[in-house]
Measured scan of single mutants.
Amino acid sequence: YETDHQDYCEVCQQGGEIILCDTCPRAYHMVCLDPDMEKAPEGKWSCPHCEKE
């Protein structure tokens, strides 16, 4: 199925295993987040940009 999420990391602009924000189209590698994540979040997750809003 098609999503509106970007298929690359917002921080480093590379693809790969990325996690998707449930609020906006941004996507991130877990290691590119500050602080980085050990494992993928369970349930709904909002990226740092959305958390600030």
Rank of each mutant, 00 (worst) to 15 (best):
K52A: 05
H49F: 09
D4I: 09
E38W: 04
C21M: 00
C24D: 02
H5V: 15
T3V: 13
E10F: 11
M30Q: 04
C9T: 01
Q13N: 15
C32P: 01
T3G: 14
P41G: 14
P41C: 06
H5E: 07
G15M: 11
Q13W: 05
K52G: 06
L33W: 12
G15A: 10
H29G: 01
C12H: 00
M30E: 13
W45E: 13
Y8N: 08
A40I: 15
Q13C: 10
P41D: 12
C24A: 00
H49P: 10
D4S: 08
E2G: 13
H29E: 00
Y8V: 08
K44I: 03
H49L: 06
D22A: 12
W45S: 13
P35G: 12
Q13G: 12
Y8W: 08
D7G: 11
A40W: 08
H29N: 02
C50P: 01
E17C: 04
R26V: 06
E42K: 12
L33E: 02
H29R: 02
V31W: 05
E53N: 02
V31S: 12
E10H: 03
A40L: 13
C12A: 00
T3A: 03
P41W: 03
L20M: 11
Y28S: 05
C12W: 00
I19T: 08
Q14H: 06
P35S: 14
G43N: 09
D7Y: 11
A27Y: 13
C9P: 01
E38K: 05
E42I: 05
D36Q: 10
H49G: 09
D36G: 09
H49R: 10
D36P: 08
D7H: 02
E38C: 10
E42T: 13
C21L: 00
K44C: 07
E38P: 07
I18L: 06
M30V: 08
Q14M: 12
P41L: 09
K39N: 05
D36K: 13
W45M: 14
C50H: 14
V31Y: 13
V31H: 13
Y28H: 12
C9A: 00
V11P: 05
C50I: 02
V31E: 09
C47M: 00
E53Y: 04
M37Q: 08
H5L: 15
P35R: 12
I19E: 09
V31L: 15
C12L: 00
Y28V: 10
D34E: 13
Q6S: 12
T3C: 14
A40S: 08
